[in-house]
Design a protein around this nucleic acid. Sequence first.
DNA 1: AGCACGCCGACT
DNA 2: GTCGGCGTGCTC
Length: 833
Amino acid sequence: MLDFLDREFVERETLFVEVILPLSLSKNYMYRIPFELNDQVAIGKRVVVQFGKNKIYTALVKTISNEAPEAYEAKYIIDVVDAYPIITTEQLKLWDWMTSYYLCNEGDVLSAALPTGLKLASETIIVLKEESPLSDEDGVIQEIVFTDKEQIILNALTSRPRLTIDDVSALLGQKTVYPIINSLLSKGMVYIAEEVIEKYKPLLKSFVALQPFYNEGENLKQLFSILERAPKQLNALLAYLKLSKQQTTISKQQLLEESACGTGALKTLVDKEIFAVYKRPVSRLLENTEDFVLNFELSEAQNRALQQIEDGFLTRDVMLLHGVTASGKTQIYIKLIEKAIENGGQVLFLLPEIALTTQIVDRIQRYFGDAIGVYHSKFNNNERVEIWNSVLNGKYRVVLGARSAVFLPFKELKLIVVDEEHESSYKQHDPSPRYQARDAAVYLGHLHQAKVMLGSATPSIESYYNAVSGKYGLVTITERFGGVDLPLQEVISISEETKRKKMVSYFSSKLIDEIAFALENKEQVILFQNRRGYATILICGTCGYAPKCVNCDVSLTYHKTSGKLHCHYCGYHQSSINICPACGSVHIEQKGFGTERVEEELSLVFPEAKISRLDVDSTRTKNGLQQIISDFQEKKTDILIGTQMVAKGLDFDNVILIGVINADTLLNYPDFRAFERSYQLLAQVAGRAGRRGKQGKVIIQAYNDNHRIINQVIENKYLEMYNEELAERKQFNYPPFTRLIFINIRHKDADLLNVASQKFASILKGQLGGRVLGPEQPMVSRVRNYYIKQVIIKSDKNTSIQKVKSILKETIVQFQSEKNYRAVNIQVDVDPY
DNA sequence: AGCACGCCGACT
DNA sequence: GTCGGCGTGCTC
């Protein structure tokens, strides 16, 4: 008896879990496990918990312990969602690293990592009570008086079964709604409930099956005679029997297509209990069953590089492949991927977002068939959940993805490829976690003992430095695949051309001649202008007034397509002006120009040419991007004008000419990386020219035609650029010789912000001395009505960055504990590039 | 994030 | 006066 009780006691151990909630909270919360769920709870599973007064969330179990928290009584978890953990221990380690490295909350990481479909949250709904209490228990009719607002809600509830808090707020046109809802609640007219929304819905498809009874030969024979006088139904039966020889399950859709019997006949068959229709969840993901093995041979240079990479991986975990544009890096990746999956491993292939919509994905997908998954923002929730599960259960051996793919639940990761590793889109700027996916990938590789392959034609200074200094291995390819020559590159001085009156609009005579020549030969052209919109700003020629955004400290950009002035920071727009609102003058001038204007001017010069535009504005609509790209690929367009989007991993085979309309704006950007970025962008743009057998041509127009960066691009001198940049970085204490942390301090009140940021900087300086710079006014000092000040920490290599971060964290806590500054928003951006 | 509570200005 | 906006604090 005692024995039994003892065992019972052990089994009924009181357990507590620490969970991560999908909210930006600075700490995790503890819940108690009810005994009956003890053996269902596990680390990495989701649990349903109540947080606060009535909100329900799914949270993720991080740790389990048998120690009760002392300071408070823990709430019970409500339920366990998953049968198996959906998060691996490696993922939890990656999250921990990200939380401490980028100084963010664990909830931020969780929110970024999990597809929305795996996050549940409840919503408060208001429902009308069936029995309205217009009489009390004694049957006495009571007069209940409603206010107008209460009446509005009651009326709405007669036509709609339920209202959300937002609905009520919209209905009343006011923000504070709880007093009214509470009043209705106390009058007994409504009740409120928390509805948990399951965001992921499996796709159900209808299948058809013959009732088992007719599987007997005799019965089936009889069935034929029964259906003799119903030809359509007989057709359906025949079609079914035919299909069932080839496959085990037959969908309703398939049967209808095969037999052309119509839904009516099928329904009759179901009613007669000859057929049964049932629903089953199916995958939304396209099955790539075609076995499309494309065989290709590596060139000698590629083989050499591959060998060097494999040798390098024997002693190093990270290799950098520096291969000129069109040197065939993708084929090398494919060989590496092949070997990794042959050894039973999984592979993560990171690409910039835009490149995921195109050829490279196609190429790799054809090669690896249905073992490959693609993960990026184009997919909806449901699809993302299915991809997640396919990675988790090991169905996907290879995943191509944008930066967020580092969060997928790999179990046997053996190789990570980061293509175009220099791309700035690997860095997430907003919201937190402000992580750099390339760096996270290196850490992820470390966690899985996987090899990491970074590749680029124009490596970032940091990565190249890591390679040169021996932290990474380095492999270089200097020749293009198939021996295609690098494009002929030429710089045109805009000032010279202007002086000689040879500019037609924004185009030099040389550029115009080359475009004309290309069009005559039915070749394609890309023009690059790194500004969107029509005119950069409008300015009054009389008084100098320029329209500015009402929410941000920037001038508005004129967009001709919409006929409006747009703010590129907050999305604000207003109608354009013909008369200066300050002085009444009609002399409004347009300064600067963007892609829209280039498009318009070019169509005047080449009215016959088919021109399209690739920028954020033209790709905003769904499929807009895909459409523009495929039209260009299929040669439906002759000339493509684009912002830097055209440089990001897009491959076009028939482009013979690239024109850079104005290289100066890039070079003049006030940032220590401006030259590096300019080199990368120009070299990448230039690399799009002449990829299939033909030598391409690149024309760069600039006022600063003698700029060293332009010369280095033209002469393809990456190393020279690297060395000069590195010397500059060393001299002025920039990465890779120091580490940067940006601290953006924001508040709606400019004066308070000034005081607060001064105070914050001085506390920090007290701890970190000269490593702290600022506060300074950033280039754009107000966005969405928040004023911004920036404090920068520049920490040299001899200082422990871990120490700096913990001091920073403490300083923020200390600063925020002061009442006046509690509302001041502080955002930390570690490695802000 | 979202909800309660408490303070304060602007109107029936 | 009272309604509604807004700032502040808390959630295991």
